[in-house]
Every structure is written in structure tokens, then in C-alpha cells.
């Protein structure tokens, strides 16, 4: 199973993603330059975190027009897994691969912290190695993470089991301080209607080893592995 990690100008979690896949999991990984139009036969595309194009205009708005994104969209349409992390989530929303938008954090401050997120649906290719209700401890680092969509879209996402991760406290319950950015309905991550595109604000690729405080992020990558190897 080969991972392709897209590098946009201003991406800064592409190395973390590469490390997670190649060094921690020992799987083949390649960087895909944003100007390339060749996915090099990868099975999974990672849109990494960072500040592509300086977050000019809106986070993710310009990256969406990078040449590689046409190929990423085609890969997604064909059912290929796409993992959009942080800025990658913002890009996926701007590109229409996922509904909604990520707006400026409610408190207007950049948040760099560890949060807890609860697995809301374990029956997806990204969460099969979790149980619904599991609480994962994962870092966040973003200024524009407030997931926003109209009520109809939110109801549809919930109804179709597409809200995959929700911000909670250590006990697995949302409370007044568990949501780091004011995201509507405490949403931390969602999947596409077909279930093959995941966008989330927390950084699972930065939680791959106990050495850095949590290895909970591995479960997302291991879920993907289990699916493709099955």
C-alpha cells in the first residue's frame, strides 16, 4: 500500500506525514509536488497540514487550483482514499470533495494543543480499527478550524453517519472547553458520501509514537491498511 503526500507551497506537515507512513509504519511513501499531474500509482493520497499559499484569500482556496488537485479529485471519484488533515481538510472543502467550510476559530486565536476526539462511526475505512465511542488523544494546531455548514447539511452528515470524529473531554463527553475552535456540533472530522475522503482538523500523523505523547493516530492509518490488505 503506497501513500502519496502532496506538497503545496506552504505545506508544513508533509514531513510529519511522510515520517508517520514511511518510518513508523514502514510503508512506501512518496511526496507529490503540487505542480505534478501524476499520482505515481499511489493507493492513498494525503493532503497534509500547513498554510498552503500562505492561506491567502481563505485557507485552502488557492491550493485547490494546483495541477495535482485534478488528479486527486479523479482519484477520489474512483473511490481512492484521500486523507485531508488540517489544511488538507480546508483544501478538500474548498475543492468540493467534502461539504462545509472551516472558518476562523471562534475565539480568534491560533490553537496549539492536544484534544480528545470521539470516534462517532467505526464502520468506515478510516476507523475500522476503532470502536464507536473510542476517545483518541490527538494534537491540533490551527487558526481556521471552525467547521461550518448549513443546518440541512449538518443534519444530512449526522443522519448518514458521516460525522466521524467529535471533540469531547477526556471522559468522552463534549463540554464547555472540549471544542477548541467553536466547530458546529463539535465536529472534528467528516467523510464524503462515498466514504473514501476523510477530512479532520486534528493531526493523527503527529500522534504515531508514545514518545511524542500519543500513538492514537496510528489507528486511523492502521484502519486504512486493514482495509486495503483485506
Amino acid at each position: 500500500m503506497k501513500f502519496g503526500i502532496v506538497t503545496f507551497p506552504g505545506s508544513n506537515c508533509d514531513y510529519d506525514s511522510y515520517h508517520a507512513v514511511a518510518d513508523v509504519l514502514g510503508l512506501p511513501a512518496v511526496y507529490l509536488w503540487h505542480k505534478s499531474t501524476d499520482l505515481e500509482g499511489v493507493d492513498v493520497v494525503v493532503l497534509p497540514g500547513g498554510f498552503s499559499y500562505g492561506d491567502y484569500l481563505r485557507a485552502g482556496a488557492i491550493a485547490r487550483f494546483s495541477p495535482i488537485m485534478k488528479e486527486v479529485a479523479a482519484h477520489a471519484r474512483a473511490g481512492g482514499p484521500v486523507l485531508g488533515i488540517c489544511n488538507g481538510f480546508q483544501i478538500a472543502c474548498e475543492a468540493g470533495l467534502l461539504p462545509g467550510a472551516l472558518l476562523r476559530n471562534e475565539k480568534l486565536q491560533f490553537v496549539s494543543d492536544r484534544v480528545y476526539m470521539r470516534v462517532e462511526n467505526a464502520d468506515t475505512m478510516f476507523t475500522s480499527r476503532c470502536e464507536t465511542g473510542d476517545v483518541l488523544r490527538i494534537p491540533v494546531a490551527h487558526g481556521d478550524g471552525r467547521f461550518t455548514a448549513d443546518e440541512e447539511t449538518l443534519d444530512r452528515l449526522e443522519g448518514e453517519g458521516r460525522v466521524i470524529f467529535r471533540y469531547v473531554n477526556a471522559d468522552g463527553v463534549p463540554d464547555a472547553t472540549s471544542n477548541p475552535n467553536g466547530a458546529m456540533r463539535d465536529i472534528a472530522g467528516i467523510i464524503s458520501a462515498e466514504g473514501n475522503v476523510l477530512g479532520l482538523m486534528p493531526h493523527p500523523e503527529r500522534a504515531m509514537e508514545e514518545l511524542v505523547g500519543s500513538a492514537d493516530g496510528r489507528r486511523i492509518f492502521e484502519s486504512l491498511l486493514a482495509r486495503v490488505s483485506a
Binding site: L103, L108, T148
Partner: peptide
Amino acid sequence: VPRKGILDPQGKAV
């Protein structure tokens, strides 16, 4: 501008 009904924390602070 942010659409009506969308929380605009900057606007609210101002």
C-alpha cells in the same frame, strides 16, 4: 462578508 447567520466573532467583538 460572512453570510447572515454565520457566526462572525471579529464582527461581534467590534
